[in-house]
Simulated assay, not measured.
Amino acid sequence: MNGKIKVLIVDDSAVVRKILSSGLSKYPDIEVVGTAPDPFVARDKIVTLKPDVVTLDVEMPRMDGISFLQRLMAYYPLPVIMVSSLTQSGCETTLKALEVGAVDFVAKPTLDVSNSLNDVIDELAEKIRTSVRVKIKKKVLKTTDTKRPQTSQALIKTTHKIVAIGASTGGTEALKEVLTQMPPNAPGIVIVQHMPALFTKAFADRLNTLCAIRVSEAKDGESVVPGTALIAPGGYHMALNRSGARYYVTINQDPPVRRHRPSVEVLFESVAKYAGANAIGVIMTGMGDDGASGLLKMKEAGANTIAQDEESCVVFGMPKEAIKLGAAEKIVSLEKIPSAILSFLN
């Protein structure tokens, strides 16, 4: 885009507004055009200042962040990045915000806000740059369907099959779309979704209430079995391993790979090594290139591979890089990923 990225900061804390405003202003391509202490002031400033991106605190006075976000997405859709506290309620509210239409989030620890916020300024700036390229569509608010899905699939072949999925920006909703379509006897699924610690457990618990399969945050040494999806814990790499016919995951805090921990690359490379042709790899929406070369290694090891197409991605970064490498056997829309996975099992 031409010119600076115009940002509006919405937070009830004057301290937070000042730190975010001064912190983001040091980047030559970002201009903080205004701040607002609550959604009502923010509403008027959005109309007059026409920001490209809004940062929004999840917990706000007078009108909570979710209610404001719902109205914004319905009437004046634009990229919104949530600024979330690392609490149980903060995690749950953030996941709801992503469901409603927020593009991404940054987490602010609850202790020593001034120092911790300075630590996330770089992350926030990077996500602002990414979000301004996201296609935002008007979102009609839907009631969350908590019914467990019915599947028309008869018993599918699951012997020793592993499905490995990697996602980043936009991935929480994309993963929900895929996992809610998995039948109860689906192969074991291992997932890396770029998220900080605490959020992955809340995310897994939320998915577990919606899916026919069991979804949980992975534990070191946990078996990968049919009907189960394991999500890498935030802040930890997850790798697949094998002992005889048993697949299991290992969790570690080795240095970040491709600037991420958990890294999709780590997961995919381990799946290529230990599952080979018995695996299916899926790379989905996300910025950067994490997992692209790992998906290629899976393909070279005989695995079936799938990349999400550009049109259905929030950010066409990771799938694009995988496709450029020739790592994707199939390139399909988000809604067709579940059937593509299942087609490889028969």
Score class of each variant (00 low, 15 high):
residue 332 V to I: 13
residue 4 K to P: 05
residue 311 E to A: 14
residue 17 R to L: 00
residue 187 P to N: 06
residue 188 G to T: 12
residue 89 S to Q: 08
residue 31 E to A: 02
residue 316 F to M: 12
residue 336 K to I: 09
residue 63 M to F: 08
residue 13 S to E: 08
residue 84 S to R: 14
residue 249 V to W: 07
residue 180 T to K: 08
residue 56 L to P: 10
residue 256 P to N: 04
residue 4 K to R: 13
residue 298 M to L: 05
residue 243 S to R: 11
residue 121 I to S: 08
residue 237 H to F: 02
residue 304 N to P: 03
residue 231 I to E: 12
residue 49 L to Y: 10
residue 118 N to V: 03
residue 45 K to M: 07
residue 10 V to H: 09
residue 183 P to L: 03
residue 192 V to D: 01
residue 185 N to C: 03
residue 217 E to S: 02
residue 212 A to L: 15
residue 185 N to A: 04
residue 102 A to Y: 08
residue 278 N to F: 14
residue 304 N to G: 06
residue 260 H to S: 08
residue 96 K to C: 00
residue 253 Q to Y: 12
residue 274 Y to D: 11
residue 307 A to S: 07
residue 20 L to M: 03
residue 85 S to C: 00
residue 87 T to K: 00
residue 100 V to C: 02
residue 333 S to Q: 13
residue 275 A to V: 02
residue 120 V to G: 05
residue 96 K to M: 02
residue 270 S to Q: 11
residue 244 G to L: 10
residue 62 R to P: 12
residue 206 R to L: 05
residue 27 Y to F: 15
residue 314 V to Y: 13
residue 110 T to S: 09
residue 212 A to H: 14
residue 208 N to Y: 07
residue 256 P to V: 06
residue 230 L to C: 13
residue 115 N to Y: 11
residue 94 T to Y: 13
residue 47 V to F: 08
residue 4 K to M: 06
residue 55 T to F: 12
residue 69 L to A: 12
residue 154 A to M: 14
residue 76 Y to F: 02
residue 193 Q to F: 04
residue 225 V to C: 01
residue 326 G to N: 05
residue 197 A to D: 15
residue 101 G to L: 05
residue 60 M to L: 10
residue 258 R to F: 11
residue 293 S to V: 15
residue 239 A to T: 12
residue 83 V to G: 01
residue 69 L to F: 10
residue 68 F to W: 09
residue 81 I to H: 01
residue 14 A to E: 13
residue 18 K to V: 05
residue 207 L to E: 15
residue 293 S to A: 04
residue 141 L to V: 10
residue 26 K to G: 04
residue 162 I to N: 13
residue 158 T to H: 11
residue 105 F to E: 14
residue 112 D to V: 13
residue 100 V to G: 07
residue 79 P to R: 02
residue 214 R to P: 00
residue 28 P to I: 06
residue 209 T to C: 11
residue 302 G to Q: 00
residue 159 T to R: 13
residue 7 V to R: 15
residue 333 S to P: 12
residue 27 Y to G: 08
residue 35 T to L: 05
residue 237 H to T: 00
residue 302 G to H: 00
residue 202 A to G: 13
residue 277 A to R: 10
residue 63 M to P: 05
residue 293 S to L: 11
residue 290 D to A: 09
residue 201 K to S: 14
residue 45 K to F: 03
residue 254 D to E: 11
residue 333 S to L: 12
residue 198 L to I: 05
residue 261 R to T: 08
residue 78 L to S: 11
residue 101 G to A: 08
residue 297 K to L: 03
residue 177 E to N: 07
residue 110 T to F: 01
residue 116 S to P: 06
